[in-house]
């Protein structure tokens, strides 16, 4: 039914080779607690999607929060287009938010239950001041386009999140994240709450968005198959440190760090398709 996902998709246009988003020696500690991140350095360059893997408590989600500009690192810096990200700089933050959008793990808690889908998807446009005047009662055509791009029916806009299944909700979340045409999509376990059959479709959708929109994805995932399918680069985190990073093919194919090796060996596999 499906064509196999190429292991390392061809990199997108490499025009801008410098990092869009980067962490430089970033550390993070909650007040009065031992640090959860130590000297993390990562680059997210255009067309080179990044997968962050590691076990729970390794600091994956904290890295993502730093890259999303939700929290300031307690040491080191986060760079956006080469400039240090300053959370109080409104002008820079507006450019940053426009360029970097996010998708979350749980499609039930990531959509406001009291907003219609049209309102949810249009939120980045409204908040970033990108709304265009449309006639009363009309939708911004970009909302409809975003919904169509993620494969949702046209009447979805008028409905509420609870009327949709988990996979459809995740599509709504992706439509919201892509409506303002960002360059980077930061995703926290975007498919791990979904059923296997749904998971495949969402992964395929993300691959399609990478190819057609030139979107670069930075994703936290515990599922190495999903990372292999979506990310050109992989970084392995253990106890708040990046223990290994590089091209996905080499990190997952010939891991050098013992933890990476253990991680890869632990992935449950189906018995091979051919009878023995």
């Amino acid at each position: 039914m499906t064509t196999p996902i190429p292991a390392t998709p061809a990199p997108g246009p490499r025009a801008a080779d410098s990092a869009i988003l980067a962490a430089r020696d970033a550390g993070f500690a909650y007040r009065g607690a031992p640090p959860v991140l130590h000297g993390v350095s990562l680059d997210i360059t255009a067309g080179r999607s990044l997968g962050l893997v590691g076990e729970s408590g390794a600091g994956k989600t904290t890295v993502l929060r730093l890259l999303l500009g939700l929290t300031r690192p307690t040491s080191g810096r986060i760079l956006f287009d080469g400039d240090e990200l300053r959370l109080r700089d409104r002008e820079q933050m507006r450019r940053f938010r426009r360029g970097v959008q996010s998708v979350f793990q749980d499609p039930y808690s990531s959509l406001d239950p009291r907003q219609r889908v049209s309102g949810i998807v249009a939120e980045p446009l409204r908040s970033l001041g990108l709304s265009r005047p449309v006639a009363r009662g009309e939708e911004d055509p970009r909302v409809a386009a975003a919904l169509e791009a993620v494969g949702l029916p046209a009447d979805a806009a008028r409905r509420y999140p609870h009327e949709f299944s988990g996979g459809q909700r995740q599509r709504i979340a992706i439509a919201r994240a892509t409506v303002c045409e960002p360059r980077v999509l930061l995703a926290d376990e975007p498919v791990s709450a979904l059923d296997v059959t749904t998971r495949v479709r969402i992964v395929d959708l993300l691959i399609e968005l990478k190819e057609t929109r030139g979107l670069t994805i930075a994703m936290v995932s515990h599922d190495l198959s999903v990372v292999a399918a979506l990310c050109e680069r992989t970084a392995v985190l253990e106890h708040g440190r990046v223990v290994e990073q590089g091209d996905t093919a080499s990190v997952l194919g010939s891991p050098s760090h013992p933890y990476s090796r253990r991680l890869i060996a632990s992935v449950p596999r189906l018995p091979s398709p051919k009878s023995p």
Binding site: M1, A7, V226, A228, L252
Partner: peptide
């Protein structure tokens, strides 16, 4: 469908590993 989906997801990793 279930088996294919699982295999489809695994395929990317299989190629590398």
């Amino acid at each position: 469908d279930l088996v294919d989906s699982a295999r489809h997801l695994e395929s990317a990793l299989e190629r590398i590993v």
